[in-house]
C-alpha cells in the first residue's frame, strides 16, 4: 500500500491505495465522491472524466498513485461556493442537456475543459471535443446547445435541433 495525497476540489485528501487502484476508485470508494461515474469500463465513454492539474482525463485510465500531489477537480467541485449550480451545470439544466443523467458528470467536466481552452467554440468544435463522451439518451443536440449557452453564445443560432 502507498499513501497518496491529492487536493480534491480544493481540499487536501489522503488515502492508502494499492498500485492497481484507479483514480476513479480512489475518488468513489476511498473518498466517497460518487458523482464521477464508471460507464464503459473500457476507457471510451468519458463518464469518469475529471480534471487532473487542469487537464481533462479519464479517471478509469489513470492510477491513483500517478496523481500523488496533483490537483483534482470532480463534478462535486463544479458548483458555486454557495451551493448553486455552476455556469456549465446550469446551462445543462436550462437546455435539458441530459435525460438519464449518467453521462452528465463527464459531459460537464469535458465541456468545462473545452471552455477553458476555447471560450467561444463553434458548434463543430463542441461536437469534436465531446467525441470521447458518449450519451445514449439525448442524441447530443441539447448537450451541444448547453455548451454553447455556457459559452455565452447565441443558442437559437446553433444548427442543432
Amino acid at each position: 500500500m502507498t499513501r497518496v495525497t491529492i487536493t480534491v476540489n480544493g481540499r487536501e485528501r489522503s488515502a492508502e491505495v494499492e498500485g492497481r487502484t484507479l483514480l476513479v476508485e480512489l475518488l468513489r470508494e476511498g473518498l466517497g465522491l460518487t458523482g464521477t461515474h464508471v460507464g464503459c469500463d473500457t476507457s471510451q465513454c468519458g463518464a469518469c472524466d475529471v480534471h487532473v492539474d487542469g487537464l481533462l482525463v479519464k479517471s478509469c485510465a489513470m492510477f491513483a498513485v500517478e496523481c500523488d500531489g496533483a490537483e483534482v477537480t470532480t463534478i462535486e467541485g463544479m458548483a458555486n461556493a454557495d451551493g448553486t449550480l455552476g455556469r456549465v451545470q446550469q446551462a445543462f439544466q436550462n437546455h435539458h442537456g441530459l435525460q438519464c443523467g449518467f453521462c452528465t458528470p463527464g459531459m460537464v467536466m469535458a465541456a468545462a475543459a473545452l471552455l477553458k481552452d476555447n471560450p467561444q467554440p463553434s458548434e463543430a468544435e463542441v461536437r469534436y471535443y465531446l467525441d470521447g463522451n458518449i450519451c445514449r439518451c439525448t442524441g447530443y443536440h441539447n448537450i451541444v446547445k448547453a455548451v454553447m449557452a455556457a459559452s455565452g453564445q447565441d443558442v437559437p443560432a446553433c444548427a442543432a435541433g
Partner: peptide, 9 residues
C-alpha cells in the same frame, strides 16, 4: 488520436 482526454495522457 482518440479523444481529448486520451490525448492528455
Amino acid at each position: 488520436i482518440g479523444d481529448p482526454a486520451v490525448r492528455n495522457r
